[in-house]
Design a protein around this nucleic acid. Structure first.
Length: 192
DNA sequence: AAACGGTCCAACCGCAAACAG
DNA sequence: ACTGTTTGCGGTTGGACCGTT
């Protein structure tokens, strides 16, 4: 199998992109589309590997990207979908069309994970950590946590139902194989 | 004003799935 | 059916920036 040489090739640039490089990449894609990412750098006159170009385009240059702070709505969506999909960032990003998976991943790791931790919720399972459940402490914070949990749980179920509906739709429109129709095209099954 | 520590984000790395011959 | 190549994804890291001491 061998991995593609990609960035191992000598002479290829790494690190932050310059405005000139951005310009070249943008201009090329606007004119020709990205086509084969592997062939793109040479055609566009860039000393980068295709992988790097693809990443730069997807995460930064694409015109339909919304940058800046996440809204409350977006935040909630991410939390709900993360409960459903786990670390399937691309899947989550598919429900936030103007956000990239990288951005969502960063936001989760830097903001949401910590926040859930603070609230006594395990960010991985999104279930209350043991001592949060055993709120024998009588701490009002725990009550708040539980109430949040209830909210999330219902939101989670709702999102799950929606996903199932959507994937059925996708499955039926793209044909036959009913066994696989309940899963997303690339990421199989909702492993929760 | 400088040093230090923490936070955030862009970009890289390596793996696995998908695709093509 | 098999093998090699390309693409896409998730995890991780480096460094710039910002707040605190």
């Amino acid at each position: 199998m061998g991995r593609s040489p990609c960035c191992d090739k000598v002479g290829l640039k790494k690190g932050p992109w310059t405005p000139e490089e951005d310009q070249k990449l943008l201009a090329y894609i606007e004119q020709h589309g990205h086509g084969s990412w592997r062939a793109l750098p040479a055609k566009a006159g860039l000393q980068r590997c295709g992988k790097s170009c693809r990443l730069r385009w997807i995460n930064y240059l694409r015109p339909d990207i919304k940058r800046g702070k996440f809204s409350l709505q977006e935040e909630q969506t991410i939390i709900q979908l993360h409960a459903l999909l786990g670390n399937r960032w691309s899947g989550i990003a598919a429900h936030l069309p103007k956000r990239t998976d990288n951005e969502i991943k960063n936001y989760w790791n830097t903001h949401l994970k910590k926040r859930l931790n603070k609230m006594g919720i395990d960010p991985v399972t999104q279930k209350p950590k043991t001592n949060a459940l055993g709120s024998a402490t009588g701490n009002p914070k725990d009550a708040a946590t539980l109430s949040h949990m209830a909210q999330w749980e219902s939101a989670r179920l709702e999102a799950e139902a929606r996903l199932v509906r959507e994937s059925k739709f996708v499955g039926s429109s793209s044909s036959s194989s009913s066994s696989s129709s309940s899963s997303a095209p690339q990421h199989t099954s909702n492993t929760v």
